[in-house]
Design a protein around this nucleic acid. Sequence first.
DNA 1: GCTCGGATCTATGTATACAGAACCGTTGTG
DNA 2: CACAACGGTTCTGTATACATAGATCCGAGC
Lengths: 212, 212
Amino acid sequence: MRASDKAYAALREDIIEWRLLPGTVLAEVEQSERLGISRTPLREALSRLTAEGLTAAGGRGVVVTDISLEDIDELFELRETLEGKAAALAAERGDAATFERLRNELLLAPALITGGDPARHDYYGLVGRLDAAIDASISNSYLAQAMRSLRVHLVRVRRLAADDATRLTAAAAEHATIAEAIAAGNSRLAEAATTVHLHRSLSHIKATHTPR
Amino acid sequence: MRASDKAYAALREDIIEWRLLPGTVLAEVEQSERLGISRTPLREALSRLTAEGLTAAGGRGVVVTDISLEDIDELFELRETLEGKAAALAAERGDAATFERLRNELLLAPALITGGDPARHDYYGLVGRLDAAIDASISNSYLAQAMRSLRVHLVRVRRLAADDATRLTAAAAEHATIAEAIAAGNSRLAEAATTVHLHRSLSHIKATHTPR
DNA sequence: GCTCGGATCTATGTATACAGAACCGTTGTG
DNA sequence: CACAACGGTTCTGTATACATAGATCCGAGC
């Protein structure tokens, strides 16, 4: 693996996990020494992070960007637009059998959620597979790219909220509804189910949001 | 201006204007000598271009990405989603007087379009101001960012089509309709007018598309 | 004549040195 | 006592040298 990739992955992880808090100045020499590489690959990593919006180039050095409550609203507004469209397209173009299978798995998900941490990891993987199946079905690389760049920020937001078993169980049911609508080829229902799911997620995040 | 900014602007311009054709390999030493800078700032410029999707990092060096007919369809699919939402939000949140003024200017636009090249430049500026007014009204930086990254590719596509006076006159009327709907605060109409406009644009581009 | 292997060469990835600019602390003056 | 200007320090921006990996080409062997 290239040193710049390593630095990018490490910094991105640190930012997403809130180990590097917003406002932190990422000085080049300091970070390059911390990561054990030279400044050149580090600069490339910082460029990529800045392009993604995780950092911003201020006058002196790059700083970790903040996510305010208004940002979360904006983020979900865009997310609703993109994922709603994606779900509708998946309903039109996706493979029904694939989503039918995902739906059946999602209906069994509550067992995973209450089953402790390793099983819960399986649940996150299952949701990820639903996302991936939608991505693959839409066959629109630009839309897929836009959603990818959104998800980076969403992971960051998610870490602010508590994902308790109650909410996860409800979310699994919502996901199952989305999968069912896609499998049935009902694009309007798929979009509506996505809208509902995202509103519930947003409400939950705002309710359990822990100010830093 | 920094050397990397200069290189970025120059390469971006070359790609958008189709002076650097898809598939062209941008070798680092070659381009750095052509632009009169060293490899370090050039690499940063190439990173930015790759992040935007104008170039792609292949096994050896970065290559200028292609835009196929399918890409144009995908591009407009996403564009319809984003700009439709943006127009709707602008109708809800925008300042009516601003869009009323833009509408009145757009109604006078046919005179600019038939008035030769310098006047036509004014027309493009007017459309740009409508875009900027919508961007400012939505007050959603993530959505605005997504639209910005889309516009880069759209400029590239637009150069493939012939923008004759007939089409531009029709487009001006469509833009005026959008501005009117936003000024009236009618979000559904604004979204519908945007959808119509984009479909017309896409049809025109595909009809007059000149295969390279 | 074709294929496989090695050597060479070229382009990218990384490190480092140097220059220029910005920021902070200090000092001098109003 | 406050504010501004100046100098030092530190950081970024750029250039260049070096290492490394991949590709290409030539030659030998089958």
